[in-house]
Simulated assay, not measured.
Amino acid sequence: MTDKFNKVYSVSVEPDEFLLLNETGFEQTIQLTEGQLLMFDGMSMRDNWRELGVDWLVEPSIAHQNLKKPDIAGLGASTIVVSPKYSPLFLNGFSKNVELLECNLEGEKWFAFNVVGFEKALSEEHSIRNIKNGKPSRIRKFKKMVFDKSAIENPELFRVREAGLRYFTTDATSSLYSIVQEHGIKGLYFHEIETV
């Protein structure tokens, strides 16, 4: 373990308060044509990455007209992207398991977080899976999710395979949570996860 911590948090965005990002239509067309759909699946993308064009995902409804621009935005359901204002906080060795991949938002350089690999932090003994009709729920996988603190090797930002697309962080001094709190960065929400 690289840095001591007491708490673990899930990382989420709030689509009812902040704008989300999406790949531009041109990017999606290129990916479909080349058969290379963008997937943040725990594998490294650094060597094959080219600058990704992104736009604000704006829904033309009255309910979404007052959404704020975040400092860190969700990119679809797959990752988060940090603005040029705060990217220097993450570009110099933030975490050994996180690649920061360049995106272009209307001429500005934003950076997508690609978390490489998965932690084996789920405590099966203390977690309770959500079973519906004899099968695990695909939407809400756990009634109670508990992590083993001693199994977390990358406290800055990590993923757990059993938890799906979700990202997690801790209250370690160099973690995403601590950096966001210290600098007042807007766009992310943190929900504490039980630990043993």
Rank of each mutant, 00 (worst) to 15 (best):
M1C: 13
T2R: 14
T2S: 15
K4P: 12
V8C: 15
S10L: 09
S12N: 09
E14R: 07
F18M: 07
L21V: 04
T24M: 08
E27Y: 06
Q28R: 15
T29E: 14
T29H: 13
I30R: 12
L32P: 05
L32Q: 15
E34W: 08
G35W: 07
L37I: 14
L38T: 12
F40W: 08
F40T: 04
D41W: 13
D41T: 11
G42N: 09
R46T: 13
R46I: 14
D47Y: 09
L52Y: 00
V54T: 01
D55F: 08
W56D: 07
E59S: 11
E59I: 13
E59K: 11
S61Q: 08
S61I: 11
A63S: 13
H64E: 06
H64C: 04
L67A: 00
K68H: 08
K69D: 05
P70F: 01
A73H: 02
A73I: 06
G76W: 05
G76N: 11
A77P: 08
S78G: 14
S78L: 11
V82G: 00
S83D: 02
P84Y: 03
P84E: 10
Y86K: 02
Y86G: 02
L89F: 11
L91F: 07
L91S: 09
G93Q: 06
S95G: 10
N97A: 08
N97V: 05
E99R: 01
E99V: 00
L100H: 02
L100T: 02
E102R: 13
N104P: 03
G107L: 04
G107T: 07
K109T: 08
N114Q: 07
N114W: 02
V115T: 12
S127E: 02
I128W: 00
R129Y: 01
R129V: 07
K132W: 07
K135S: 06
S137V: 03
S137G: 03
R138M: 13
I139N: 10
R140V: 12
R140Y: 10
F147D: 03
F147C: 03
D148E: 09
D148N: 13
S150W: 04
N154W: 01
N154K: 09
P155W: 06
E156A: 11
E156G: 09
L157I: 10
R161Q: 10
E162C: 00
G164F: 10
L165H: 13
L165Y: 12
R166K: 11
T170C: 06
A172S: 15
T173A: 13
S174N: 15
S175T: 09
L176A: 06
Y177R: 06
I179T: 05
V180N: 01
V180T: 12
H183R: 11
G184D: 09
G184E: 08
I185F: 06
I185D: 03
Y189W: 07
E194V: 05
V196L: 12
